[in-house]
């Protein structure tokens, strides 16, 4: 598996993602500068967390017009796997690759702590290494992670099984207390209809070693690796 990590001006989780892939997963990884138009043969593109372009205007609003994004969009449309983490998720919703929008946390504060996520579907490309309804302990660090979408459209999202992760308590129950930002239906992460683009507010790349509190984030990367092997096995792209 080869992973490309995009660096926008203002990204600050690009090294975390790079380190997780290179030193923990021991897979090939390369930084992709936002002005580049070459994805360097990546099987997975990561749009990392941070404050791309200072989050001016709206989080992700300016980053989506970076030269590299045109290539990322083409890559995704041809079936390539893309993960947007935190600020990366905001970029994906801003450019329409994922539905909905991420608004200010309902309490207006920046939240930085571990949360529990329930895996809603463990058959997808980003979750196949997880158990059914497994609860993962992964940190969040954001001020604008309040997932919003209009009622009818959220219903469709739910019916399509596009909700990948939901904020829950440690026993796996969906509660208001477990929802750190006011997200609709406790949504923490979603995939597109085709299942090859994932956006999530929590940071799996910051939960890859027990010394930093959790290894549960590895499941996401291990799932992608398994999906890559599967794709290679079927001779597809």
């Amino acid at each position: 598996m080869k992973v490309g990590v995009v660096t926008f001006p203002g990204s600050n989780c690009d090294y975390d993602s790079y380190t997780a892939v290179k030193h923990i997963l021991r897979e090939e990884v390369e930084f992709l500068w936002h002005k580049s138009t070459d994805l360097a043969g990546s099987d997975l593109v990561v749009l990392p967390g941070g404050f791309a372009y200072g989050d001016y205007l709206r989080a992700g609003a300016i980053a989506r017009f970076s030269p590299i994004m045109e290539e990322v969009i083409k890559f995704a449309y041809s079936g390539g796997m893309v993960i947007g983490i935190c600020n990366g998720f905001q970029v994906l919703t801003e450019c329409g690759m994922l539905p909905g929008a991420l608004m200010r946390n309902h309490h207006l504060r920046f939240s930085c702590r571990f949360v529990y996520l329930r895996v809603e579907d463990n058959t997808g490309r980003f979750t196949n290494a997880c158990g059914k309804h497994q609860v993962l302990k992964i940190p969040i660090a954001h001020g604008e992670g309040n997932y919003f979408y209009h009622d009818d459209e959220v219903r469709e999202l739910e019916e399509n099984g596009q909700v990948a992760f939901r904020y829950v308590d440690r026993t796996g129950k969906v509660t208001d207390e477990a929802n750190p930002n006011g997200s609709l239906n406790n949504i923490a992460g979603i995939v597109n209809c085709e299942g090859n683009v994932l956006g999530m507010m929590p940071h799996p790349e910051r939960a890859v070693e027990s010394i930093i509190g959790s290894v549960d984030g590895l499941k996401v990367f291990e799932s992608v690796r398994a999906a890559c092997v599967q794709v290679a096995g079927t001779g597809g792209k």
């Binding site: 205007l57 709206r58 909905g100 929008a101 608004m103 979408y149």
Partner: peptide, 8 residues
């Protein structure tokens, strides 16, 4: 395209 996010 830029100044407003038509979703919200």
């Amino acid at each position: 395209k830029l100044l407003a996010n038509p979703v919200i």
